[in-house]
Design a binder for these strands. Structure first.
Lengths: 159, 159
DNA sequence: CATTGACCTAAAGTTTACTTGAGCTTTTAC
DNA sequence: GTAAAAGCTCAAGTAAACTTTAGGTCAATG
């Protein structure tokens, strides 16, 4: 039959280790990105005699979590920091996952709230004629009170 | 008296033109950013005999609008494109503003909706034990601009 | 009139998250 | 047994949105 049997000759067991190409195919993460994540310490691998990477299957779970976190807008550095809080750098178990995802949900909530506030202000300003921007709440997204100093300080750095 | 009277000797009228430093101070946008915006065509100025920039006051309004749009996550290129739809590159009047802000609000709405969906999925997955990531909805957020390459093979197509 | 402080330009640097390319080795397939 | 596919490393490129640096000019002030 000559089936494709990559990443070692161990057989088709579930515990089979994965080559970088297999991980890429199964995770949807490019090989170059896998190299990159490894260089950043987000995932890890060991090497074969021929210096090729081999991954444990749980790298797929780790990648799944990384993707979810990225979708919520968490930067890689923070994702790494979160993963680093796990003992032995192990892949999160159920409890870890609950903790991580709860934390990330807070971030999401905060960002949703911020965008919602902004949208509401925008809503209130459409066609309101405050275009003079003298007192428009949009100018000051941080909900800051008026500035002092010489003359009006319109736009503030950012929220 | 000897009041600070910059950017020309035209007097204190409201129509006074502004130097780059004054615009920076009043808008909260760094001088370097003003140069940058100008190079990108988002704002404009004329020059004095000594080659210094002078701005009309409505540059402040334009900057306000740019900031609002940026806060909603619109990239500069798109902001420019939107501003470019205005005749004569004029600063938006009330009607223009209504159109632009309505458009941007849609973007905001969409992003809020996306984040909310993500949060809800995350919520549903906290502690749900789907950590195996076999079928977890989080793995494949429907809103993702589909992965490129040969068909998004998300995690675990086999076993 | 001389000294600052504000400006000017052009180019290079910064950050995030990767991708691309070059040049070389290992594995797999026929 | 050999060629193609898959891997490897390291360096450089990409994109967005600016900032920083360097080197020089202009202008307000004592």
């Amino acid at each position: 039959m000559a089936m494709k049997q990559r990443a070692g000759t161990v057989g088709g067991g579930l515990g089979r280790e994965l080559s970088v190409g297999e991980v890429a195919e199964r995770s949807g993460v490019a090989v170059s990105a896998l190299h990159f994540y490894e260089s950043k310490g987000l995932i890890s691998s060991w090497r074969t005699g021929g210096n090729q990477r081999r991954y444990a299957r749980d790298v797929l779970r780790r990648l799944g979590i990384i993707k979810v976190a990225q979708n919520t807008g968490i930067p890689l550095a923070e994702i790494k920091a979160a993963l680093d809080t796990l003992p032995d750098g192990r892949t999160p178990n159920k409890k870890d996952w609950a903790r991580l995802s709860a934390r990330w949900r807070e971030d999401l909530d905060a960002r949703i709230a911020q965008l919602t506030r902004l949208r509401d202000r925008l809503e209130g300003c459409i066609g309101c004629g405050c275009l003079s921007m003298e007192n428009c709440p949009l100018r000051n997204p941080g909900d800051q009170a008026g500035e002092h100093g010489s003359g009006p300080r319109y736009l503030e750095p950012q929220s």
